[in-house]
Nucleic acid binder design. Structure first.
Length: 308
DNA sequence: GCATGTCAAGTTGTG
DNA sequence: CACAACTTGACATGC
């Protein structure tokens, strides 16, 4: 993989101002129609969404943004037990494949780093077999998409503690080692704001050779005794030991840092929240903010990293 | 049109 | 116990 040797920012999933939209459909709606019509509706949406993805990468490349997080329901309800489907079931499968091909080429030429962040239902530490099976199915879907677009990272949280963190972490490790190799090589673990800190995750990541995505906002919400500098260095060495570029997340809290249980993301990133030790690093930083691409462009400006 | 309730899924903390 | 929060609102319905 090409490496620019610079800090790059990542846009998460959707746009604020830019007229690029992704479509959705619920299982409930689909279930009102016979299978043939379900597939035809799904095909329309999937084709629309891959075209939107292509536009997204174009925007990203034109604006000096180096990474893009792809929204999980790019193919809505793909793994749903009643209405789930395969790519080849869709009437537009061939065209969709062709758009994927264009996306892969574009990504490669412009060195755009692609990732996924499967949502909170994916819990590899669960003590319920059903949850593990659903998670595995969902991660396999993400891995298929990752193949189609040449994405590097599938990033998840550990999830629950179940009153015993050691056991949960050991189940996590057990379940990770059972995943197919290709999927495992894309998997990353992210520290969260209520249960698992970098202190919890780094030893597991070292052992399994799974890199950690360091979310500094979560770390500030849920500190663990390590400094931001220490975690940054450990994160970098983990990724570098695998020959890969480190991955960070940044966001600003909407209602300040006062002991507020509710911590929605702010519209923009306060440059004061950007860790000094991240500057000059060779790393990718996903920007999690309500105003999406506007927040990235503003942050690039604030930090003197604008394209121009 | 526009306002409002709903959507597959897990887990936790707050009020 | 109900609900919001989490990486992200969009969609369906009813007026």
């Amino acid at each position: 993989m090409k490496n620019t040797g610079k800090l790059r920012f990542g846009l998460c999933c959707i746009f604020s101002n830019e007229p690029i939209k992704f479509r959705q459909v619920t299982a409930k709606t689909l279930l009102r129609y016979p299978r043939v019509e379900q597939l035809s509706r799904l095909s329309d949406i999937c084709l629309h969404n891959v075209n939107s993805l292509k536009k997204s990468l174009k925007f990203v490349a034109e604006n000096g943004i180096g990474a893009f997080r792809i929204l999980s329901p790019l193919f809505p309800r793909f793994t749903h037990p009643q209405v789930g489907y395969q790519l080849e079931d869709l009437p537009d499968a061939a065209i969709i494949q062709q758009v994927f091909e264009e996306i892969r080429r574009f990504r490669n030429i412009h060195d755009i780093r692609l990732s996924f962040h499967p949502d909170q239902f994916n819990v590899l530490a669960s003590n319920r077999d059903e949850v593990i099976q659903n998670t595995t199915r969902e991660l396999t879907y993400h891995d298929m998409l990752a193949d189609l677009v040449d994405a590097e990272v599938i990033n998840i949280h550990v999830g629950g503690v179940y009153g015993d963190k050691e056991s949960a972490l050991s189940r996590l490790q057990e379940n990770i080692t059972r995943l197919p190799n290709a999927l495992r090589s894309r998997l990353t673990l992210e520290n969260d704001d209520v249960s698992y800190t970098p202190v919890d995750l780094l030893p597991v990541c070292d052992k399994l050779k799974i890199p950690m995505v360091y979310d500094v906002h979560h770390h500030r919400c849920f500190p663990d005794g390590m400094t931001e500098e220490e975690v940054t260095e450990r994160t970098i060495s983990l990724w570098q030991s695998l020959g890969r570029e480190p991955y960070f997340h940044i966001s600003s809290p909407k209602y300040g840092w006062q002991g507020n249980s509710s911590k929605p993301h702010s519209d923009y990133i306060d440059p004061a929240d950007f860790p000094l030790c991240w500057k000059e690093k060779n790393a990718t930083i996903d920007v999690e903010a309500k105003t999406k691409e506007l927040a990235i462009l503003q942050l690039q400006k604030d930090l003197g990293l604008s394209k121009a």
